[in-house]
Amino acid sequence: MGRYLLRRVLQMIPVIIGTTLLIYALVFALPGDPVKAMFGEKPVNDAVAAQIRAEYNLDKPFIVQYLLFLKNALTLDFGNTFSGRPVIDVIGDAFPITIRLALMAFVFEGVFGVIFGIIAGLKKGKWYDSVILIVSLLLISVPTFVTGFVGQYLFGVKWQILPVTAGRNPGFIDLLLPACVLGSVSMAYIIRLTRTEVASNKTADYVRTARAKGMSNRKVTMRHILRNSLIPVVTYLGADLGSLMGGAMITERIFNIQGIGNTLWQGILRGEATLVVSIVTLLVFVFVVCNLVVDLLYAVLDPRIRYE
């Protein structure tokens, strides 16, 4: 177990180097001059431009820029944005908001996805199974921005129950609708996964054996059908937490939430390699850690899996 953990942690190093390098290269390859973008429509003095280039190492070759970034990142110094704020501060402001949003979405999709999935699975073929299936299919096929705008219009504008957009420092109510929108697609997947698992476990041989012991239907369902069905669901949920953080970009744009997704978006627009790569590094890190936790959780839930 200890050796397995160590191996997995060491594996994170090449993953993070690889992804940052790739992202750095992609941002570097973006068309347009970041210095010009900084000044917008105004003409730029050549000397000033050169000074800025030197300050942000923009005059150096790509690989040198990347290595400088990596060197500083190791000391948690991610440099400054073009506006002069330290990148670490920008992330520090935006990240808690995204975490709040992602966790709310996570709870939403977990609770409702599993509940609806179980109901549909246990009552496979009944009318509510069909309704749940159709709704989940709808949520999967409609893009997030459509769900987002429809939700905004219905709840915010027409019925005026929830705020249309979130402000500077959003609270629970502000994030409720965005969290539901963000979690809706994953919820639909969880419904389908849970439903399939429950429906197939329901007819498993060991469930029949349990019934033959004289156990009550409730106990058989809890101990044998649900326990076994939820193993893949829990692992899916774990892996999804990482995607929720990274995938919040569209939702944050729609609801104007000043989270990590929005910041990333602005960084890309401005061609700020340091900001973009820093955020992506962070997201990759979160994602890899989530996956590791999922794998460890899997071993706890399923005794057949043991790591050496």
């Binding site: 054996t209 033959a212 156990m215 101990r223 326990r227 399923d302 005794p303």
Partner: peptide, 24 residues
Amino acid sequence: EQIRGKRIGLVPQDPMSNLNPVWR
């Protein structure tokens, strides 16, 4: 449920699939 186990027991066919893998 009242007669299963107590009055009529079952030994099923396939030992591989008739025990729940996640319980001792």
